Amino acid sequence: IPGAEIDRQFEVIENNSNAPKLVITKHEQNAAFMAQAVGRLTGNAGVVLVTCGPGASNLATGILTAQTENDPVVAIAGQVQRQDLYRRSHQSTPTVLLFNGITNFTTEVQDAVNLSEVIANAFDIASAAPKGASFISLPQDVDDSPVSSQALEKVENISAGPASPEQTKFLPGKIRQAKLPVILVGQRGSDEKTVKALHDFLHATKLPVVETKQSAGVIDRSLVEQSFFGRVGLFANQTGDQLLKASDLVIALGYDAVEYEPRVRNKNNKLPIATIDSIHAQIDAHYNPKIQLVGDMPVTIYLLAKQLNNYSLSQESNTLLN
């Protein structure tokens, strides 16, 4: 959404055929949600550009949502010129303080020379695990300043390696021992590469799967009859909830506690849990995984599949599922 402090940005975008596509919205919150949708659907950070004051503060709900749901977003907001930052001037707002607690990265550009590196870091941090939001405050006089430094080349995403070999070998043994192992797929397990690896894994192992609301649609039609057992519900009364209660080993794939509170389904903290994720689990009184496979999720899943060659659910498991 245009505004006086960032008009120069819009002029450059509008008149440059190589610039990103410009979409004008009627409200900053809508723009933030649209950028979040881009981040979730493509895996690349969506970008939102707004003016200062209420233009920036209107972003807060959308940016907090992207941060909470691990969707990569880079927000750039105009700011009054630096000499007015400490004054009670028109639309002067301490946006760094506002966004510092709800993003992975927040900063204010104080020198145009640093602009390219600030933007590079914002995109890099928003796109790295755990994905989330970055916020850049751009004072008007910095935006108007000539830039003598060269733009940095695109920062390539860093690929993590698989989980530790010891844990990757340990989990298959636990799966073979379990009477009813169940996979709980969360938001971080719903990206294209992880879903492809999961589908191949399920075609081989035929393990049952429960989705959170944020990972809805991970299981496609080719696997519905074999592996899909619904989604968890708010009141723990859905088929997926009942299956988790009956399980003696829950394998949480890319699951985040914000999606489905552990205390709802693990009140006594007796449920054996293993995680496969790109980040460490948040431990609490109802969620204390005994095994954590932290690393590149698709690669880790493929390694697990090799360890579970010729695995099949027991007759007892199939009886419970049917």
Rank of each mutant, 00 (worst) to 15 (best):
G295H: 13
G173P: 00
P162Q: 05
T25N: 08
S116D: 15
G39P: 00
I283L: 05
N288T: 00
I13E: 15
I125K: 09
P289Q: 03
A120P: 02
Q214G: 03
G46D: 10
D84G: 04
L234W: 07
S145T: 00
F123K: 07
V182A: 03
L308I: 09
A122Y: 13
V250A: 02
V250D: 01
G217H: 04
L98N: 05
I279K: 12
E156P: 05
A160E: 08
Q81M: 10
A35F: 13
N30T: 15
D191H: 14
L49F: 13
Y255I: 06
E11V: 08
K154Q: 15
S134M: 07
P2R: 06
L202F: 12
T25M: 14
P139A: 02
N100W: 08
T300V: 05
N310H: 14
Y287M: 00
N44I: 06
P2M: 10
D144F: 02
G254W: 04
F135T: 06
A35M: 07
N18C: 07
F33W: 13
D296Q: 07
D124A: 13
G233L: 05
G295N: 08
P139V: 05
L171G: 10
H199Q: 12
F105M: 00
E211W: 03
G240V: 02
G39R: 09
G254N: 02
L303F: 01
A197E: 04
Q79T: 03
P172D: 03
S222H: 14
Q9T: 14
I301P: 05
V142H: 02
N121C: 10
H90S: 02
I158C: 04
L308G: 10
H203P: 00
D241T: 01
S148W: 03
F33P: 02
Q91W: 01
A252M: 10
L313M: 12
S317A: 15
N16C: 13
Q140P: 01
